[in-house]
Amino acid sequence: MAENKTQPTDVSVEEFLAAVEHPTRRADGFELLDMMRELTGQEAVMWGPTIVGFGSYHYKYDSGREGDAAAVGFSPRKANLVLYGVTEGPHADRLLPELGKHKTSTACLYVTKLDDVDRGVLAEMIRTGYQHVMSEYHTP
């Protein structure tokens, strides 16, 4: 079976964020770095070339495919910030309507800029998403 393309790297998270061209995305990336670091108690790690991740877990699907992924994380893309793992918490459905301007997909939350969302609600989503992923999938 093929190895996952998105693996942890030794690239500096701070250097990656400093190189983000869009000034709002860059500033929001540094704010998310501090917020996620504080809420998870984990240091940031680059996963692949563009994802800043916190914590990790091992998954195994019924198909036999397995691998490791960041418990929560984000990527400052050109069009928006993509947040991973934050919609996994048990309260995400209740919190999303309170968050502010956003979009979602199956596993991602898309935010144009942090000023569009309630940071307290976002913090709760990060905290509960991280705790949920780590309790459901993490094996010591």
Rank of each mutant, 00 (worst) to 15 (best):
57 Y>H: 06
85 G>R: 10
32 L>M: 13
127 R>M: 04
78 K>P: 03
86 V>T: 14
32 L>K: 11
74 F>P: 12
78 K>Y: 08
117 V>C: 04
30 F>G: 00
8 P>D: 04
121 V>S: 06
44 A>W: 09
103 K>T: 10
33 L>Y: 05
20 V>M: 04
88 E>N: 07
3 E>P: 01
80 N>V: 10
79 A>M: 07
65 R>G: 13
50 T>N: 15
88 E>F: 00
47 W>Y: 07
63 S>D: 12
97 P>S: 08
73 G>H: 11
90 P>Q: 05
67 G>L: 04
97 P>C: 07
34 D>P: 09
27 A>G: 03
106 T>C: 11
70 A>C: 13
72 V>R: 00
129 G>I: 03
54 F>P: 12
84 Y>C: 03
89 G>H: 03
53 G>A: 13
17 L>T: 09
35 M>L: 15
126 I>N: 08
45 V>D: 12
110 Y>M: 10
109 L>E: 14
121 V>I: 15
24 T>A: 10
49 P>I: 09
52 V>A: 07
82 V>E: 01
21 E>V: 09
12 S>G: 02
62 D>T: 05
51 I>V: 15
86 V>L: 09
109 L>V: 10
91 H>A: 08
71 A>D: 03
55 G>I: 07
105 S>R: 10
132 H>G: 00
62 D>S: 09
16 F>H: 12
55 G>E: 03
101 K>N: 10
46 M>R: 01
53 G>M: 14
85 G>L: 08
73 G>A: 07
96 L>R: 04
57 Y>T: 05
65 R>N: 14
16 F>E: 04
72 V>Y: 03
108 C>V: 07
78 K>C: 06
129 G>Y: 01
120 G>Q: 08
89 G>S: 07
105 S>M: 09
39 L>E: 02
7 Q>N: 14
74 F>D: 12
22 H>N: 11
45 V>E: 15
22 H>Y: 06
42 Q>S: 12
37 R>A: 13
4 N>W: 09
100 G>S: 05
60 K>T: 06
63 S>K: 11
104 T>I: 01
14 E>A: 06
45 V>S: 14
22 H>I: 05
81 L>R: 04
123 A>L: 01
70 A>H: 15
17 L>S: 09
38 E>R: 08
62 D>N: 02
19 A>R: 10
108 C>Q: 13
26 R>Y: 00
3 E>C: 02
14 E>K: 07
82 V>Y: 05
